[in-house]
Amino acid sequence: MSENSVTVMFFAMLREQRGASEAQVTLEGPETVGALYARLFPPGAAGALPVAFAVNHAYVEAERLLVAGDEVAFIPPLGGG
């Protein structure tokens, strides 16, 4: 694991697209959670979804800056209930 990496969790259709439920990703300088999502799931690409963002198990805005060691999750449209 790099010193400047975060753990990214993938769920539902995003997990299927990635073929993995989590990954270690090295941050590219100061990077927001929204920018990280756009980097991993480029807008316009097949399957790019509107998602919500969570860092360390709490919802955050897309502008939230990530720091090494964060647990990041992209939250696709929910289906609980």
Binding site: Y59, P76, G80
Partner: peptide
């Protein structure tokens, strides 16, 4: 129930005779 459906990070995949699909609230 309203807040659970809107906020709890839980997803649902429906398997039907036609195939499988993720179903959003």
């Amino acid at each position: 129930m309203d807040r659970l459906k809107a906020e709890a990070p839980i997803w649902k995949r429906e398997l039907t005779e036609q195939g499988a699909a993720w179903r959003a609230n």
